[in-house]
């Protein structure tokens, strides 16, 4: 899991394609590995809150070390699907998941599996930055401490490594213990939350509209970061921003609302194809701005 620092910059310099630029690219230039093992899988997943079906019959695979974006209009259930993978839906009273959700081929909802274990392997970055009201250091060390790491030297190490990975180290290294996580700017807070997630050494990082509360410059930093992180991690990101999906993701899943008010997966494909030549008319309408 711990690749050398330098190795993770491979995709960082990828130019930011505009929709026009994408159109001129050829699919074979995307460099996606068709044989990559499946990290996350949803099979015929339906989620209901009480009597209301929020999402129905979603089937999709997320290959390892790639970025998948979930796009679609508000209320189409993309966040709900995202939160199946770390069982955060369990926290909502009345929420029930049907179908099969897999991490590395194992059923995440099997009776013998503890949500706590799943969430250690699958980190979640929230829509609004939510650092704890503690020092920067304590924020990052929170996960490792709870998981039993007490050694000071090792904690120092994890904190530094995680903050470096989240591209925040240089900005905060002098006041790690002095400053509260809440005293940082919004963009810094969100990178702190990413560092906090990385410190628990997850395999998958879920991001639920991580930039929707940030300004464009902070957004750009997070997007660069995502490009670097996918070398080591598998990432799924929910976003409202189609340019963002186009910039950061390898594959894109488009969800929408059915006539029964339940969300469903319309189309999943390589990001390039979704934005240039989607198979479904609904997708085309959405990405070209005619809908949503």
């Amino acid at each position: 899991m711990n690749t050398p620092q330098g190795a993770s910059t491979v995709t960082a310099t990828r130019p930011t394609p505009t929709p026009l630029a994408i159109a001129s690219l050829q699919p074979e230039l995307t460099g996606l590995d068709p044989d990559a093992p499946v990290k996350l899988r949803a099979q015929d997943v339906s989620i209901r809150y009480g009597d209301r079906v929020a999402v129905r019959d979603v089937t999709l695979d997320v290959p390892e070390h790639s970025v998948m974006a979930f796009i679609g209009p508000s209320g189409c259930g993309k966040s709900t699907v995202l939160r199946c993978f770390d069982r955060m839906n369990d926290l909502i009273p009345g929420a029930a998941v049907e179908g099969r959700v897999e991490l590395d081929g194992e059923d995440v909802y099997a009776p013998s599996v503890l949500p706590v274990e799943v969430r250690r392997k699958v980190g979640l970055v929230f829509q609004r930055p939510n650092p704890f009201p503690m020092s920067i250091y304590e924020n990052v060390a929170f996960g490792p401490r709870r998981h039993g790491e007490q050694g000071k030297a090792r904690l120092d190490d994890v904190v530094e490594r995680s903050l470096r990975q989240a591209a925040l180290w240089d900005e905060v290294k002098d006041d790690l213990r002095k400053k509260s996580g809440l005293s940082l700017s919004g963009g810094q807070q969100q990178r702190l939350c990413i560092a906090r997630t990385l410190a628990t050494d997850p395999e998958v990082i879920l991001m639920d509209e991580p930039c929707s509360a940030l300004d464009p410059i902070a957004t750009l930093k997070i997007e660069e970061l995502i490009g670097q992180l996918k070398v080591d991690y598998t990432i799924v990101i929910v976003t409202h921003n189609m340019q963002q999906a186009a910039r950061v993701s390898d594959r894109t899943a488009f969800f929408t609302l059915g006539e029964d008010r339940a969300g469903y997966l319309v189309e999943l494909d390589e990001t390039l194809r979704i934005f240039t030549n989607p198979a479904n008319q609904l997708t085309e309408d959405y990405v070209s701005g005619r809908f949503g």
Binding site: L91, V116, V118, R119, R120, N130, R146, R196
Partner: peptide, 27 residues
């Protein structure tokens, strides 16, 4: 105490009691 403090702790793989003990109670 904001609900997203609890969710943040749980999403890091802590138990509910760890979230109470280390996030809710101090806050």
């Amino acid at each position: 105490v904001p609900a997203d403090m609890r969710s943040a702790s749980l999403a890091l793989g802590t138990t509910r009691w760890q979230a109470i003990r280390h996030v809710v109670l101090p806050a």
